[in-house]
């Protein structure tokens, strides 16, 4: 098993072999983002921007204006907050072809603690016009989706992750990764768990636990957070009648909100939200933090039970 950030470094190296249209920007955290792998393989296509994220993001827009695709890399708290106004006014508004790739997402960050545990990035980038937001679930999907966002013209916020994650069965069809398309990972009829990132694997484990209780749980991986797969969300709401969302992110403004925006307007059904309950984290091992902050498969099973009770009551 490797982490999504390691997969990110590996995928950059692999993609660089066949395409020379991108460069990688770093803010003195290459060891943390996995970009050190690329730096060592392609030093001429690696641009050290120092611990100066605001200059890095605006500078990237300048590179993009000349036809180069800059992949801006740093930790999510800095990509989504320290330099967010640069990303908004200098990249999003003029619609430059800049890719902002962030590691260090949510409680998965672990021992570095709350200052580096980003719980807001999806909410923030999702609210900026012109941006797409993509958050793959496993190393193979990371490579597929990275290739797809490089082919896409326009700004993209892309999320990796720190802890090793397994390949998810059913997550990687032979078809190319498409923005705006979710992936049905496991079929089910009683409810759907729509998950993102490292939570997709836990959602599959939750579905297995629910199966032992006689509950048929569908699992969807919504790696394309924006544009979201409206058709798939509506189909899940209509066919299973209940939805639980799961994200290592504040329950406000992230995947759960994005799904709810579709559900309430197009196909209302009971929903429940597994995620960080509007709080900062703390230092600790990722598994311990997941347990303390309600991000495990057991939390998804409990949310499923709540939402199924409401479904019956309807």
């Amino acid at each position: 098993m490797i982490s999504l950030r390691e997969a990110f470094g590996n995928s950059l190296v692999e993609l660089a072999k066949t395409r020379d249209d991108f460069v990688v920007l770093d803010a003195d955290v290459a060891g943390g983002t996995g970009v050190n792998i690329f730096r060592d393989a392609y030093p001429d296509r690696f641009i050290q921007c120092a611990i100066a994220e605001q200059n890095m993001v605006s500078m990237a827009a300048g590179l993009a204006s000349t036809g180069v695709i800059p992949i801006v890399t740093c930790y999510a708290v800095f990509a989504s907050m320290r330099a967010i106004e640069q990303a908004r006014n200098g990249v999003g508004y003029p619609n430059f072809n800049v890719k902002i790739a962030a590691s260090h997402i949510g409680m998965d960050v672990g021992p570095d603690g709350a200052s580096h545990q980003c719980v807001e990035d999806v909410a923030i980038y999702r609210a900026i016009p012109n941006y797409s937001v993509v958050s793959p679930a496993d190393p193979t999907e990371l490579k597929r989706s990275l290739s797809a966002i490089l082919d896409h013209q326009g700004p993209v916020y892309f999320r990796t992750g720190r802890s090793p994650v397994p390949e998810i069965e059913g997550n990687n069809p032979s078809a190319p990764f498409l923005l705006g398309k979710g992936q049905l990972v496991r079929e089910g009829t009683d409810l759907t768990i729509i998950a993102v990132g490292i939570m997709v694997h836990r959602a599959v484990l939750a579905a297995e636990l629910l199966a032992t209780q006689g509950v048929s749980c569908r699992v969807v991986n919504m790696a394309s957070l924006k544009p979201i797969d409206r058709d798939l969300v509506i189909k899940c709401a209509a066919e299973t009648g209940a939805i639980v969302t799961a994200e290592d992110h504040n329950v406000m403004g992230g995947l759960g909100s994005a799904v709810a925006e579709v559900v309430v307007s197009a196909s209302p059904c009971p929903m429940d939200f597994v995620g960080i309950q509007d709080t900062f984290g703390e230092s600790g091992e990722p598994d311990d933090l997941a347990a303390k902050y309600g991000l495990t498969e057991k939390d998804m099973v409990e949310a499923a039970e709540r939402v199924l009770a409401r479904k019956v009551g309807q």
Binding site: I47, Q54, N55, V57, S58, M59, A60, A61, G62, L63, A64, S65, T66, P70, Q86, G90
Partner: peptide
């Protein structure tokens, strides 16, 4: 900063 990107 944008100008620096153009220059680089």
């Amino acid at each position: 900063s944008f100008s620096l990107g153009c220059a680089l």
